[in-house]
Amino acid sequence: MQEMGFQTAGYEAEPPEVMARNINVGVRLLSAAMVSFFGAFLFAYVYLKERDAGAVWRPSSVKVPTGTGIGVLACVLVSALLTGVAVDALRRRGEGAWRGPAAISLLLIYAALGVQCYQWASLPFTPGSGPYASVFVAWTGFYGGVALLTSIYWLQTMVTGSFRTRHVPAGPVVSVAGAAGGEGAISGRIQVEARSFAFYWYFLAGVQVVTFLLLYVVA
């Protein structure tokens, strides 16, 4: 076989608008995959509840932990709201105005995860106490483990990156319509990435609303 001697130096950097487009398309596909993923839990919920022959869906001993549920929901919703505020600020006033609300939004997702962990630690039933308990554990578990963690990762990379580079002139400059100054130029990437993240996080907040309705309200 031929030895392939590649040069490792001198990759061409991706044009920023291509990367931005990749993220923009990618986040929609990611959300579609998430629909499938949480759709499986939704299906399990509906299916087991409907087929409940022996009235074992939720025995009376299984109490719904509504308090902590509201806590998670509140953190997620406020965080989503702040993300919206942040994106708006980014568009109008630039990256500097974005950082504050974005950072608080990030802290709120951490808080949501914290409340969720507290809820698991103080769960008033065991996973084996019937189908409701099973669905509850699986659904909240994967919401915390997949949705919250990916959001934390994404938002934190943006926030820390932004704080770190706040004195450095931004990279490749893309003129963005409606950008009213801010701290000099705005990189096209953070614009698009923040908007993509907002899309993802709204979507996940929506999932959390559905989760709340089904697991805590309808139960």
Binding site: P127, G128, G130, P131
Partner: peptide
């Protein structure tokens, strides 16, 4: 973990 998704006599269903 001991959930009962597929345990027919504990409220679950193999059909799921």
């Amino acid at each position: 973990v001991g959930t009962t998704f597929f345990m027919p006599f504990s409220g679950g269903s193999p059909f799921l």
